[in-house]
Structure formats: C-alpha cells, structure tokens
Write a protein that binds this DNA or RNA. Structure first.
Length: 173
DNA sequence: AAAGTGATCATG
DNA sequence: ATGATCACTTTG
C-alpha cells in the first residue's frame, strides 16, 4: 500500500477522474481513528467553459482552490446541508476538479463527507502533505462505466449530457 | 414530489 | 441588506 504521488494529481481531470476509482481514501481523525475506503464513484468538473463547473463564473473567493495546482482539496457546502469533497487536478491556473461521489459503504457525495467528518476545515488542504487525509493505491485495476453527471440541470449542452461521471463496476456482482 | 438549510454571489 | 441559486438527502 503506497501513497499516491504528487504527479498523479497534476494530470488532466479527465485522466484523474476514472483513475481515482479503486484508490483508497484515508482519513485520520483528531482522536486517532483511521478510516480507509475505496473510491467507487467520481465526477469531473473541468474548466470555465464547462457550464456545470463552479469555475464557470470565473475566479471568486469560493472557487479559488479550483485554480490551484492539482493535489489540493476543495470542500464546499451544498444546499445548505451537505459538504462535498473534491480533489483539484491539473496545472495551476486551469480550474478543474474531481468530485468524490461515492466510497465503499457510503454512496452519495453528502453522505461520505458526513461519515468521514469532512467539512470546511479541510478546504484547501494538500493531499500530499496532510496528516489528516490522503490517498493510497494498491494496484487495483478498475472496471467502470461512464454516465452523464448528476444534479446539473442548470448547465447547457454539451456539458449537460457529457459523460463525465465514472462509476466502478463490482466484478463480483 | 417536495421540503429543509445556509454559504455564496449579484443586486441595490 | 436582501434575494436567488444550488455537484443533496430524506420523508411521505
């Protein structure tokens, strides 16, 4: 089991998105408790031209982390209730990120953050240096399918129906 | 099917 | 200062 290298996050979101499937999300709490869950579902949000991406209105206080170099975490509050967890990817200045939509035993982007105690404290945290959260890989080769993204009715074509959602297919089922 | 909930961003 | 808008979940 080894930690994911910094160079992994600097790749384009469309590469990182599917590659994230099967990787292990490790979360260490203040009380020393450690969670390890395999990622099962991701979505890519890429560029100001992507009308579903938060960066579509340009750089603001909220969207600033999206413009950073890959490896940062972008957390934000959705619908006033749920924290959603994203991994920033690509080069500095290119706004893009991968939303983690599901992990083993916790499907749904709002549920997994609740389960892992992820909130705004982890916004802008660096996955390469953080002692609280990071990713590991064990050589798992994912099978997956692609679909359009969820909950973005406000977007316009072609981004509304582009297949940037990646779902792990369990070989045992 | 719809409510619940609050940060964020654009108005004034 | 106020109002609209959401990368969702739960309930009935």
């Amino acid at each position: 089991m080894k930690k994911v290298k910094p160079s992994f996050y600097k790749q384009d979101a469309l590469i990182v998105g599917p590659s994230l499937l099967g990787k292990i999300l490790v979360r260490k709490l203040d009380n020393g408790k450690i969670f390890r869950y395999r990622i099962t579902e991701t979505e890519v949000y890429r560029g100001e031209e992507d009308k579903a991406c938060h960066a579509r209105f340009g750089i603001t206080n909220r969207t600033m982390p999206l413009y950073a170099e890959g490896g940062l975490i972008y957390v934000y509050l959705c619908y006033g209730i749920h924290y959603l967890f994203n991994i920033v990817t690509g080069e500095k200045g290119k706004p893009q990120a991968v939303l983690i939509r599901g992990i083993e035993n916790h499907n749904g982007p709002g549920k997994l953050t609740k389960a892992l105690n992820i909130d705004l404290n982890l916004n802008k945290e660096n996955l390469n240096t953080s002692k609280e959260i990071w990713l590991e890989e064990d050589g798992y080769q994912p099978f997956y399918k692609t679909t359009s993204r969820i909950g973005i009715d406000y977007a316009t074509e072609p981004y509304k129906s582009i297949e940037w959602r990646f779902v792990l297919i369990d070989k045992d089922s």
